[in-house]
Design a protein around this nucleic acid. Sequence first.
DNA 1: GCAAAAGTGTTTGGATTACACCCATGC
DNA 2: GCATGGGTGTAATCCAAACACTTTTGC
Lengths: 231, 231
Amino acid sequence: MYKIEFNDFFTYSFSLDCVIFGFREGKIHVLLIKRAMEPYKNNWAVPGDLVYPDEDLPDAAQRILFELTKLSDIELHQSQTFGNPKRHPQGRVITNAYFALIRIPDFSVEAASWAEAIQWTAVDELPELAFDHNLIVNSTYELLKNKLRYEPICFDMLPERFTLNELQQLYDFAFETEMDKANFRKKIKPIPFIAHNEKQQNVKHRPAKLFSFDSAAYQNKIRSTDYQFKM
Amino acid sequence: MYKIEFNDFFTYSFSLDCVIFGFREGKIHVLLIKRAMEPYKNNWAVPGDLVYPDEDLPDAAQRILFELTKLSDIELHQSQTFGNPKRHPQGRVITNAYFALIRIPDFSVEAASWAEAIQWTAVDELPELAFDHNLIVNSTYELLKNKLRYEPICFDMLPERFTLNELQQLYDFAFETEMDKANFRKKIKPIPFIAHNEKQQNVKHRPAKLFSFDSAAYQNKIRSTDYQFKM
DNA sequence: GCAAAAGTGTTTGGATTACACCCATGC
DNA sequence: GCATGGGTGTAATCCAAACACTTTTGC
């Protein structure tokens, strides 16, 4: 069997790309930056960076997310790894995708001055991206849709207080469905919510009640019963 | 912002570990090798190797699988990436796990002479493994269980001709259930099978009919209807 | 005949679906 | 009042679980 020296393998680099999702105007969006440098200068891409030699992957993901959004303590989810030898024009760069869900209003665009431009783009209206980033975003979005079914992570994208209709819009967009309103509300019955004595403002119809996800009750529920979040 | 030179990042290595699953005696098993060299000499581990600098990840996975089992054309599934800086005692080695499902009798133990020992171990009876391989196997097994729900991959582990009871045993083991026989058979009704005019041999009770998974009919079904495999 | 597992039918209760209707607000 | 979306109840249907029963083989 052909054997290669251990040191001869130290010829590639390892990066981490962050796919940051948010929800706005009924659609799931991705945060894109316009690259200010070569390669792919002026192309849109997801934010990414090389991983430091002594840095763990979740730490690198938190760092990259913070550098761009100034947000910390955001839950990050590992997506897939993309290792095609030709994916980076300057050499072999294997990249690991992570994704985060944030509330778009919590993030201020000004914070990210190091990129030439920055923009939220609906996942169904992506332009052509740098590197293999279209593949990365699309694969990661598939993963997100899957997680939305079995984990209550949609609330990381919705405002802290949301209407049941906003919640339904999120799922209708992700699953490409148009669920019946009454049936949707029956479906979410098992999810623990905090109902606020507060209503929508400035709408020209009957204002909807505002809800929050009851995280403590949820944790308790999965611990003490065999309840499983399911959409 | 602190900026590090691109070349300073070329200080880690990238490996690929193959978690190979099979089904035997009512349990899902993993193929383990006993390491013949340091580090972790004489410890059990899953087979893995460094990725060649110009090698794509799926190719590396196929190569490692072939070197060990001499089996080719096996479908490989990407699992997670493990990048803890301390996971390898000799340096930073980021590893990507892949998994494969094989029919245990198709694989001959003799083929794998390069390891000190080789052995199928039930996933619920794993010993302590080298590196972070317990984490790798357990995480990958979770992923496998998830895929068993939505993709007809169980048939890659079962013999080409199997009894419905063997199929149920596989799912009962994976999902830690004891489904009712009659209900299980109703549940699998939508799955396309080829029913053979052949029965179990050498059993001291009524012999069961043998079935195969009808892959062509399945492909056809998912293309032409909105059928979705679901267990 | 008996043990053991193969293989099938019936009943029941809970969840999903379709659909209809009333309510609160702005203009 | 009317347009708009918020919010809820009911009946029909489908599906999953529980359970009982018959069949075929070896000994």
